[in-house]
Each structure stands twice: as structure tokens, then as C-alpha cells.
Design a protein around this nucleic acid. Structure first.
Lengths: 223, 223
DNA sequence: AAAAATCCTTGACAAAAATCAAAAACTAAA
DNA sequence: TTTAGTTTTTGATTTTTGTCAAGGATTTTT
């Protein structure tokens, strides 16, 4: 059980005393999930929440005709998911599936609640985590309402870019279908948006790496 | 100072002991705001959060060209707003303005944090409140991605309807412009969506009251 | 390396929604 | 009540996005 190092890497439990971590470990368990495996379904009874140990997890909703909309992709070890369901909901409000072979930590709802009651400082960390998620979601709705696909793509690239020897690059880690779902559109529309940016020589693309050729003009599309 | 009854009506402080309420009152203050008055602007430093005593408040973002998108309308006394900014943000992430003459309770950030640390049970209530907001926002993004304006309108009516002597009615409390912004669209498009539902005799409208003539068919548009 | 499967792109078209402009309906003020 | 103001509706048009279908490209499997 090498669960402790993973726990101390979650931002809710980071900075806890070793003794407190031991307590948390008592109501937590490590679970391996294979690529494509579902961790929980929309509507499943929610008696736990999860932290990512390593891998890639998607949290998504399905529309009546089966289109999926990705609400959240968890890929940073230590990030929590499904916490929203814990406090006042009986069932999970979305589906959750591993995109690659992953390991997740399952943290029991009841265990966590009694732990919080005994360790009030932890609750402030949890509240902060929640408020971050809220702002993330507010950002998403704002993007959806104010901006078209081109500009949502531009923002996304600018917010997730890295710099590699002077070049501004964005490395896509999922499929384009996934990226499209994340941006609230479909692969065809994403493809056209990308084609547009490439035709204007604002970005270039090779494999999973996009290079931003003209950051300035990309920014004008982003807002 | 008739602040105590208002406090005990907020869902974070509901159920608190009189003594605890007194404590909360010490770092809270009642503020009158006139219609149109701004409570805080996007970017203002966030050293407090708010609860509605009575009135109507909008929390909204402005796009670069001045279009407003309403993220949240607070009209239920006791509802919190601007809490997201408290825990890990220095500034408010949106604007906030009174839609009618209102009274709000300003709750100091520092005061609240020390209070939580001494009263861990309250944090569970706060966490529950947060998770509700998260689900609300998830619901909004989902609606925006999956559904067109007609169906967002239909859902909205169905979720906010009341029953008055056998009739299923929806009473609009803001302007249509406000409703349009809330639904993530513009007044013209809302107007057309309404005209459509009226032409099909699914709803009728008189003043600010819409009567649902055919709940069944309205529901088919909602999903 | 060939075959199969999946993913991505492109085109033609249809639908949804935004924009612009103007008229109509409603409200509030003089 | 008349006027002035705002809000709402309607029409014509354009832009954006989705749908469907087909062809390429890429990856995976055998």
C-alpha cells in the first residue's frame, strides 16, 4: 500500500501531519483502472470521491442521443474528482472513465466527513478547491456564451501552451475528438477552425504539437 | 441590528446555536443597496462575501464589447454570492449589481475563516452549498452545449414554474433582456423562441405570466 | 507489410442564432 | 393624455455551427 505518498500529493491533504495522513489512509483505497474502464456512471450512488494517482480520467455527460460533453479531464496527479457529489447528493451527476491505464484513490464519504469534523483546517483547503472549480466552470460557461469555436480554440491554446526553446507550442494530449468535446463542439467544426488558423499562418501543426507562429494574432482571436 | 434573523436564514448559518450566530454577526454587516447600484466590480479586491437579505441581485460578466452574461441571479433571501472569491482569490471574478432596491449582508473573509476553524460542522454546510453551485454550473454548461435556445427556454420554464389553481404558470421576475442573458442568448432570439412556443399553443403569455397550455409538448422541447 | 479499424478532414447542405434596422407595444413622466 | 423613453417584436440578411457523406490519413492488429 503505497497510498500515503499519493495522498500527500492531493491538494486537500497536502501539508497534513503524518499522523493525520495515516488517518486518511484508513478510509481510502488505491484502485487500478484500465483504459476505457468506467469508474462510475451518471446516477450511481455516491459514497466516495476520488483523487488521481496517475493517468488520465474524463468526467462527462451524455446527451439523449449519445453525444458526449467532457466537463473535466483529470490528468494532474493529486487532482480530485467527483467531490461535488459527496455533501448533499446521493448519486454521481456525471460519468467517469479512464482514458489510459490509471490509478485512482477512492476516499470514503463517511470517513472524510468525520475527518473534516476533527480537522477543521482541512475544510478550508477543500473550500478553496471548490471555489477554484467554480471559477473554472464559470470560465467555461462564459466562453460558451461569448465566444465562437475559433476563439475558444485560440484561448485554449494560449492557456495550455508551453515554451520550448523559444517556440510557443501547444501539445495536445487527447484525440481531436476529445478536444472538440472539451471545447463544446464537434470534430468537424474543430477541424475547420484549425484549418482556418493554419491557413492564416497563425499556427502550424505536426503530429500532436501545434506551434504558435503569431501569438499576437492568435490573441486577437481569443477575445 | 436586525441582522441575526437574516443570518439564520442563510443556508450556511441555518441551524446554528444563538451563541454562534452572535459570533457571526460580529464580523457581518447589513448594507442597503439601491436599484442599479453596484456591490462590487470584476477585479475588486475580495475581502468579504455576501448573503441576500431581500431584493434581487445579478452577478454578471461583461464581454469586451459590453455584452453582459448573467451568471447567477440571487433572489432567494439567504442565498450566498461571491463566496467563490473568498478562499483562494484576491479579487472578485465578476460584477455584481442590485436589480431592485435590496439589502445584503456583508460577511468578512477573515472573520468567516476563523469562525470555520472553531466550528467545523459549519464547514460541511458550506461544502454542501458549494457542491450545489457546482452542479448548477455543470447543468448550465451542459444546457449550453447540448441544447438550442428553444429547449433551454423550455427547461427554464419547467424548472421555475408554479401551480396556481390547477394551471401551470411561470412568472418572469426580470425583463426579457435579463432572461435572454440568463439563457445565454439575446432578446431577439428569445422573442422568436417564445413566438414559436406561442404559435404552437404550448404556452400563452399575459404580462409577466406565461401559462403552460401543453406541459407534455413543452417537455419534448426541453430534452 | 498488408489489412482493418479508427481518426481526421473536406465538401455540400441545412439549421440555428446573431446582426442590423425598423416598427410596435408598453411605461413612466410631464 | 400626450410625450418621451424604454422594451419587445418582427423582418431581412449574414454568420456560425451542425449534419451527412465520402475520401484520406494514421494507427493498430494480424
Amino acid at each position: 500500500m503505497e497510498i500515503l505518498p499519493h495522498l500527500s500529493n492531493t491538494f486537500v491533504f497536502r501539508g497534513l501531519q503524518p499522523l493525520q495522513l495515516e488517518q486518511v489512509a484508513q478510509f481510502s483505497s488505491l484502485k487500478k483502472v484500465r483504459k476505457g474502464e468506467t469508474i462510475f456512471y451518471d446516477g450511481d450512488s455516491a459514497d466516495a470521491f476520488y483523487a488521481l494517482a496517475h493517468g488520465r480520467i474524463k468526467v462527462y455527460k451524455l446527451s439523449v442521443n449519445g453525444d458526449e460533453h467532457i466537463l473535466h479531464i483529470i490528468q494532474k496527479p493529486g487532482d480530485l474528482f467527483a467531490e461535488a457529489a459527496i455533501y448533499d447528493l446521493e448519486t454521481f451527476p456525471a460519468n467517469c472513465q479512464a482514458l489510459v491505464d490509471s490509478e485512482v484513490i477512492r476516499i470514503s464519504k463517511d470517513g472524510f466527513i468525520s475527518f473534516i469534523l476533527e480537522n477543521p483546517k482541512v475544510s478550508l483547503l477543500a473550500l478553496a478547491a471548490y471555489s477554484r472549480r467554480i471559477r473554472e466552470l464559470v470560465k467555461i460557461t462564459e466562453e460558451l456564451v461569448f465566444h465562437d469555436v475559433k476563439s475558444r480554440l485560440a484561448s485554449h491554446i494560449l492557456e495550455n501552451r508551453m515554451t520550448k526553446n523559444g517556440q510557443m507550442i501547444y501539445v495536445r494530449n487527447g484525440s481531436k475528438k476529445e478536444l472538440a468535446a472539451y471545447l463544446g463542439t464537434i470534430p468537424e467544426t474543430l477541424s475547420r477552425a484549425l484549418a482556418f488558423l493554419k491557413s492564416k499562418e497563425i499556427i502550424s501543426e505536426r503530429k500532436r504539437t501545434m506551434t504558435v507562429l503569431d501569438p499576437c494574432r492568435l490573441r486577437t482571436f481569443a477575445d
